[in-house]
Design a protein around this nucleic acid. Structure first.
Length: 418
DNA sequence: TCTGGGGTCCTAGGACCC
DNA sequence: TCTGGGGTCCTAGGACCC
């Protein structure tokens, strides 16, 4: 044994979650709304409301509070994308219908969603992060996983020092706060990032499993949703600790090979998934919920227009992103909220709106169309890169060697910070 | 007062091939 | 001719996540 050997590096994985991201980004331009119940979401009416606010974007912070549109009297099928903590006091939450929310808190301010703006801030905070910790997995607009293991400072205080640096840098440069959990793996890091929200850091070590993780509800495991949780309850299992008391075979008997084995691992804090820094999309789709339910026969013309538009949007998305797809599919949601899908695999890949429309039309013919529809969707899967777009430097993934060099460069930047 | 939009992954049956 | 098994692709549905 080499007596000079340093303490071995521990695997340190971070999960970083922006705090109330959309709402916080809105508050940056409307600071006068701080502390008030604000709801973001909705469809057309919210768009109108945004237009009513006028075009002077340089003085948004001066718009008096009473000029903001209220939730009261909202009609339509929009749902809440996010709500500020003040609004949540009224029992309002994500994915709730806006009409229901209007009953609970009519005085809440309704802001339209502004995805372009959120995406902009998303890019900003992610590029701040990769300057410090380059091994980042994108988990949507407001979340990432980071591998701290080999980052300078990533081992100090179990990752707390690096987490603090990232938190502070993001706040200094954007005014936004986030919460970070650092743990031996993604599963535990994800749970940990919730512990001290908002603007919190939580460090979980291997030995903390029984004390910190086992008392939590099974629902806190990322991947255990309402259905699995129900089933667990029926089996008399509430907490992760209780889940851990059952052996693998018992879990496999009740949940099947894959899920059973996975639940067992999760309960024991085991998760060896790597932090994945890049990935290819599996499918690209567009869907829309109609303002009112439509009938395939009675509303044929209207439906046809929407159908064609969806195909054109998907085609445009594919082209813009440099993909083609071989499997074309549709999705229908009926007035009773039941769903069906139909799909068809072509011989060749396409990103052409007409071809997509044609194939999707064939799918539609195979679907039951007696019931009124509330949603129609078009999906393209089985994707491959568009040959010409691989010449596009911007879309071209870095070769492994360049990638490694880029990562080293970024680590060098982080090095100077310690 | 019913419940958005864009995704991923898993399961399971059938076709088809070796 | 019968039987079986494995692998892959296609299709439909469903759970789950952000």
């Amino acid at each position: 044994m080499n007596m000079n050997m340093k303490t071995p590096k521990l695997r340190r994985i971070a999960h970083l979650d922006m705090d109330a991201f959309y709402a916080s980004v809105e508050l940056l331009r409307y600071p006068q709304l701080k502390g008030l119940p604000v709801v973001i979401g909705g469809g057309r009416r919210a768009q109108d409301a945004a237009m009513m606010q006028g075009a002077d974007t340089t003085a948004l912070h001066k718009i008096p509070i009473h000029q903001f549109p209220l939730l009261a009297g909202y009609t339509g099928r929009g749902v809440i994308t996010t709500a500020t903590y003040a609004a949540r006091q009224f029992g309002i939450g994500s994915a709730m219908g806006l009409m229901k929310a209007a009953k609970l808190c009519p005085q809440a301010i309704l802001l339209p969603v502004d995805f372009a703006r959120y995406r902009h801030f998303s890019k900003t905070f992610k590029s701040i992060i990769t300057e410090i910790a380059p091994v980042m997995e994108d988990r949507g607009v407001d979340e990432v996983y980071l591998d701290f293991t080999d980052v300078p400072g990533g081992q100090r205080e179990g990752g707390r020092v690096l987490a603090r640096l990232i938190q502070k840098t993001i706040f200094d440069q954007t005014g936004l706060t986030c919460s970070v959990g650092v743990a031996p793996n993604k599963l535990l890091a994800k749970m940990a990032s919730e512990f001290n929200k908002p603007n919190g850091i939580a460090i979980v070590l291997e030995d903390d499993l029984q004390r910190v993780i086992w008392p939590l509800a099974c629902r806190k495991i990322n991947g255990v949703g309402p259905k699995a949780d129900d089933k667990l309850h029926q089996l008399g299992i509430q907490t992760i600790g209780e889940l851990a008391q059952h052996d693998v075979d018992w879990l496999i008997d009740h949940f099947g090979q894959k899920t059973g084995a996975w639940l067992f691992d999760a309960a024991h804090g085991h998760d060896n998934r790597p932090v994945v820094t890049q990935s290819e999309p599996v499918s690209i789709s567009r869907e829309t919920t109609f303002e009112r339910d439509l009938h395939a026969v009675r509303d044929k013309a209207e439906l046809g227009v929407i159908f064609t538009q969806l195909c054109e949007q998907v085609a445009a998305d594919l082209q813009r992103k440099g993909y083609q797809g071989k499997t074309i599919g549709i999705k229908l949601r009926f007035d009773d909220f039941k769903c069906v899908t139909r799909d068809q695999t072509l011989i060749d890949c396409t990103a052409d709106a007409k071809q997509i429309r044609q194939a999707a039309g064939q799918c539609l013919k195979r679907a039951p169309l007696k019931q009124a529809l509330r949603l129609l969707g078009v999906r393209v899967a089985n994707l491959c890169k568009t040959p010409s777009s691989s010449n596009n430097i911007e879309n071209m993934p870095l070769a492994p060697v360049q990638q490694a060099q880029a990562a080293i460069n970024k680590i060098a930047v982080a090095d100077q910070l310690f």
